[in-house]
């Protein structure tokens, strides 16, 4: 069954959560460990691989990343690094979150790394109350407990409200 994919010009079709289909070259898809395992284990006999958690906009970004890295895997690292930083530049938090989720689901380590790093860089100077909102964390401290933890780490709050 796997041979049918190989015969099919080494391409496979991915389907986003919102129903859009992407035709992807096999060597590009192999950047994803998830897809690689599916291909290896012959379980992708279907012509279309559904990715129900990833929307079209995000999937297009992911595949753009994969294509660049698949085509350039033997070329210069410096070029890839500048591609990576340009790739994430100006990306809003929502897109970043979708990207990190997609990279995590599809097991694309390089993309997961840079997206997580970008998020870390974005939140590092934010007050903890805002970080709480960004990650939908429920504050389970009582006001007294919160004050105590804060007092313990007072030095880290210099310049924060």
């Amino acid at each position: 069954m796997a041979s049918s994919i190989e015969n099919n010009n080494e391409k496979l079709t991915l389907k986003s959560s919102d129903g859009e289909e992407f035709l992807v070259e096999k060597h590009v898809a192999l950047q994803s460990t998830l897809l690689q395992n599916m291909l290896d284990s012959d379980c992708s006999s279907a012509d279309v691989i559904p990715l129900p958690k990833i929307d079209a906009r995000t999937l297009a970004l992911v595949l753009g990343y994969c294509k660049k890295h698949a085509d350039a895997s033997s070329s210069k690292q410096g070029e890839l690094n500048s591609f990576d930083s340009e790739f994430l530049k100006d990306m809003d938090m929502g897109a970043l979150f979708n990207l990190v989720l997609a990279a995590n689901f599809m097991e694309i380590k390089g993309l997961l790394d840079i997206a997580a790093q970008k998020i870390a860089d974005t939140i590092k100077d934010k007050p903890h109350q805002e970080v709480r909102e960004i990650f939908h964390v429920e504050n389970d401290y009582t006001p007294e407990e919160e004050a105590a933890v804060r007092e313990e780490n007072r030095w880290a709050f210099e310049g924060f409200p």
């Binding site: 998020i119 590092k124 903890h128 780490n153 030095w155 880290a156 709050f157």
Partner: peptide, 19 residues
């Protein structure tokens, strides 16, 4: 994964996020 990339200072601050 994200938090493990932060430096010590923001991490100490984010201890106040939740238990």
């Amino acid at each position: 994964n994200i938090l493990s990339r932060l430096r010590v200072k923001p991490l100490c601050r984010f201890r106040s996020v939740s238990k």
